[in-house]
Design a protein around this nucleic acid. Structure first.
Length: 425
RNA sequence: GGUGGGGUACUCAAGUGGUCAACGAGGGCAGACUGUAAAUCUGCUGGCUAACGCCUCCGAAGGUUCGAGUCCUUCCCCCACCA
């Protein structure tokens, strides 16, 4: 019978493991955990890879624990960072944890009859830990040479401009202790993480071995990049979030729909639960008739449905059809509002819109940061009103441009839409 | 605490008295071509302005000067080594 490791490998979710014996251990249901950084109130598409790996574990009958780094988030992980990072306040972290919990609930079954997922916060076991007892009980088991030998530490020490603070240096102790705590209290034997977490994970297995004489394991998943080698999950310079308040259904769907051919099949394996045979077929279809973009479409639909449900998918799909369909003429106000419910909009008084230059309205609506930016965009032919190019810089917003006297659709470039709604003054 | 090196726009990075809203590269955005792809080509990338131009900007605050990113003083921060 294929193990969870075989599944992960086949889907491109496997990078490395600490010991070959892990394969045998995973023949039995095992408790594993993965840590999330609460530096944002919503998980990003970048966290997606880890979440999928975790979901595969749960589907394979293992017990999964999501660890929110409420305490470690107050310190900051130096791994993969070139510079010291900003510290979050305790309130910020608390707020962010709530959002993360909500995000995770869409992938993990917290009510599973036999192996319900758990969410824990390491602040709970760190908050009453005193510095002295931590040094005595935990610090004793760490050797300086090993700590200094960590890749994340070495890199920073060798850097000309960044260096590293004691606080960040201690991060690995905290993460190692997490593993120990979960081992003791939850019977956790495996930590999963991104490949940049290798050093922190081995610090944990090492600590458990020294203090408890027990063997624990680590498994890393690859850092997913696009075919250009760029880190996955950035769109127009902004991260793609799982929270629809931060990234709309529409933008979320579009992000996946715009996937490059070269990445489509790989993303399908990583980000969906579709059977590998079906993905193989989509891959062939993409070769044969690339312009149909079938693989991208399925990818966008699957992922959007998983994260935002059927409702989110419907909204995103309808908006996409309309926005890439041409003229908006036949649409009623009700339709428009429904379609654009999830697209950025701005409410403006009638007087600030009708009779004003379109450029000014576009800037006021928040489509551009300044009038100058709006002008540049217009000059380059990238400004559209109701899907019609604004060719004249001096064009004035006419009353007739308002659909049913209430809304108008502004667009910058191909894909940045903004709905202007008129409010009564 | 001492010595040396740094802090310039989204990032990297030039710039050592005027020609600097600040070279260059990357990134980003837009247009053309396409398939909402890739590649390619072109343009844009501090604010206000139709434009002339005005304003803000080079870690912070003062100062010298007709004129300062560039010189001086003090302060803050980062890095390395030493104590």
């Amino acid at each position: 019978m294929p193990t969870i490791i075989d599944t992960l490998k086949a889907r491109g979710l496997y990078e490395d493991q600490t010991s070959p014996e892990l394969d045998a251990v995973l023949q039995q249901p095992t408790t594993m955990y993965i840590g999330y950084d609460p530096s944002s109130s919503s998980l990003q598409a970048g966290n997606f890879v880890a979440i999928m790996a975790m979901a595969h574990f749960q589907r394979a009958g293992h017990r999964v624990i999501a660890l929110a780094g409420g305490a470690t988030g107050l310190i900051g992980d130096p791994s993969g960072k070139s510079a010291e990072r900003q510290l979050l306040t305790e309130e910020e972290v608390r707020h962010n944890l709530e959002g993360i919990q909500e995000n995770l609930s869409r992938f993990l079954d917290f009510n599973h009859p036999t192996v319900p997922a758990r969410l824990v916060n390491n602040y709970d076991w760190f908050k009453d830990f005193t510095f002295i007892s931590f040094l005595r009980d935990v610090g004793k088991h760490f050797r300086m040479t090993q700590m200094l030998g960590k890749e994340s530490v070495k890199k920073r020490m060798a850097s000309d401009e960044s260096g590293m603070s004691f606080t960040e240096f201690c991060y690995q102790l905290l993460q190692a202790y997490d593993f120990l705590w979960l081992h003791d209290h939850e019977g956790c034997r495996l930590q999963l993480g991104g490949s940049d977490q290798w050093g922190n994970i081995t610090a944990g297995t090492e600590l458990v071995r020294r203090m408890r004489g027990a063997e624990t394991f680590g498994l890393t998943i690859p850092l997913v990049c696009d075919s250009q080698g760029r880190k996955f999950g950035k769109s127009e310079g902004n991260a793609v979030y799982l929270d629809s308040k931060k990234t709309s259904y529409y933008d979320f769907y579009q992000f996946f729909l715009r996937t490059t051919d070269a990445d489509a099949a790989r993303y399908l394996r990583i980000f969906t639960f579709l059977p590998l045979e079906q993905i193989g077929q989509l891959e062939e279809a993409l070769q044969a008739v690339p312009e149909k973009r079938e693989a991208q479409r399925v990818l966008a639909e699957e992922v959007t449905r998983c994260v935002h449900g059927d409702v989110g998918l419907t909204v995103a799909r309808r908006a996409s059809e309309v926005l890439f369909g041409g003229a908006l003429d036949g649409l009623s106000l009700t339709d428009l509002l429904a379609i654009f419910a999830n697209v950025p909009s701005r409410e403006l008084p009638h007087d600030a819109v009708v009779g004003k230059p379109v450029l000014e309205v576009a800037a006021a609506a928040g489509l551009f940061a300044s009038k100058g930016e709006a002008r540049r965009m217009q000059q380059q032919g990238g400004l559209n009103l109701n899907n019609q190019r604004v060719a004249d810089a001096a064009q004035v917003f006419a009353a007739g441009d308002l659909i049913e006297g209430r809304v108008a659709v502004l667009r910058a470039g191909k894909k940045n839409f903004c709905l202007v709604k008129i409010v009564a003054t």
